[in-house]
Amino acid sequence: MSLELVCPAGTPSALRAAVEAGAHSVYCGFRDETNARNFPGLNFSPDELVEGVRFAHAHGTKVLVAINTFAKAGAMDAWKAALANAEKAGADAVILADLAVLDHAATHHPNLRLHLSVQAAAATPEAIAFYADTFGVKRIVMPRVLSVEEIAKLNAAINVETEAFVFGGLCPMTEGRCSLSSYATGKSPNLTGVCSPPEHVAYTEDKNGTATRLNGFTIDRFGAGEQAGYPTLCKGRFVAGGKTFYLFEDPVSLNAASLIAALAKAGVTALKIEGRQRGKGYVAEVVRTFRAAVEAIDAGGTEVEVGRLLSGLVEGGRQTSGAYKKTWR
């Protein structure tokens, strides 16, 4: 069976771009704290989702709705509404992380297909079996801590589908287990669906160049002409043990394109592209390229051919294959 390409849709226009570029599935979220990409100006209203699903289905593309934050105590209504609206819109699956949301979905929306978000950080056969047996979860988005060899072993030990990130932003921390952002700003992926929120980002020019600060903490500093990254806390430059460097992660993005065939062999069902905050031009280009690569692999294409197809994406920024190769650790 061919690999399913799961593509980001931060806005309705990005959804259309991804669908037209050949996405097998798109994933998106509602414009509120129920999804882990709660950035200003992004995401879908319930009506936009209805329209988006209609458009995607007309093109044979599935829509997966991320409702993957942890519900706020005493205020679960937004998460319940998100589940109901996703089902009403005809979503093909919802991507969930919180035990309470999973429990509610399994009980009240038995026909909704459930995927487990990377935010749930389920990395062992025992944990995955728990989610599958308890809530009927059909697919796991795998934490970005496993190597390809470990993914192969994991797939042999579980009976649900797995989805692996292959391109885009890379969290060096285990997702769903990180409170760095709330330590600095009070807001975090688990609490409010944002990491290093833009309202706490400030750029200050001084004689040493430009400092990027997150709620007063200096995350990095650039000289004129040096390329800056979005000031995500874990991608910053810090001083530790007498060294000044990118302690947690270099300003790189994930590109596991060269490992697509290996991931397929390891039993992965779907490949996920990160980037709901990226523009439609970027999304279309990445999706088109990955679609061609997946088809080349299906047709028995060589690594060289696949590599050539993807070479355009490697231009520019620096990239890593992340935890898929053990040396990353």
Partner: peptide, 30 residues
Amino acid sequence: FDGDALFFNRAISVSGRTDALVALRNSIED
């Protein structure tokens, strides 16, 4: 240029409410 490229592109400098610019950029995108 999308909301992220905005920050990578050193040709642009942003001061003040960064979130407002991200919101404007993402809204226009759609």
